Amino acid sequence: MRLAFRCIDCGIIYLPPEGLAYSDGSPASPLRCTVHQVAARELGVADDPAAVAVALFVARQQADRTPGPEEQPVRPDVRPSWPAKTRRAASNRGGRSKYR
Rank of each mutant, 00 (worst) to 15 (best):
S97T: 14
D64S: 15
D47W: 02
Y14V: 03
P17L: 06
G25M: 11
D47R: 01
T86H: 07
D47N: 08
A59Q: 02
S29Y: 07
T66W: 09
L3S: 00
A59K: 02
F5Y: 12
S81I: 10
P30G: 01
W82S: 11
A40R: 09
T86C: 15
R93W: 03
R75G: 02
F5C: 08
A84P: 14
S29C: 11
E71P: 05
W82G: 01
R60V: 04
T34V: 10
P80Q: 07
I12F: 02
F57M: 09
N92G: 07
G95D: 03
G68A: 09
P69A: 12
R100W: 12
K98D: 04
P17T: 02
C7H: 01
R79W: 10
E18W: 03
M1F: 12
C10V: 12
P83S: 12
R75P: 05
Q37K: 02
G11N: 15
E42P: 02
A51L: 08
L56K: 00
F57L: 13
G95W: 08
R65T: 01
F5H: 03
D47H: 01
G44I: 11
R79N: 09
E70K: 10
S97H: 08
D24S: 07
V78P: 01
E18L: 11
A90E: 12
A53M: 11
P17K: 08
P27A: 12
S23D: 14
E71V: 02
S23C: 00
A46D: 11
W82N: 03
L20P: 01
R60I: 04
W82R: 06
S91K: 11
P69V: 07
R75V: 08
T66H: 12
F5E: 00
L20R: 06
A63L: 08
G95Q: 05
V54Y: 03
D47T: 05
Y14F: 15
G19W: 05
E18M: 09
V35A: 08
A39I: 04
V54W: 00
P69Y: 08
R88Q: 14
Y22I: 03
L43N: 11
T34A: 10
Q61N: 03
E70N: 13
P30K: 07
C10I: 04
R87S: 09
V74E: 15
P30N: 02
P69E: 05
P80N: 05
R2I: 07
D48Y: 05
A89K: 11
R2H: 03
V38H: 12
R32L: 11
P49N: 02
V54E: 13
L3W: 00
P83A: 15
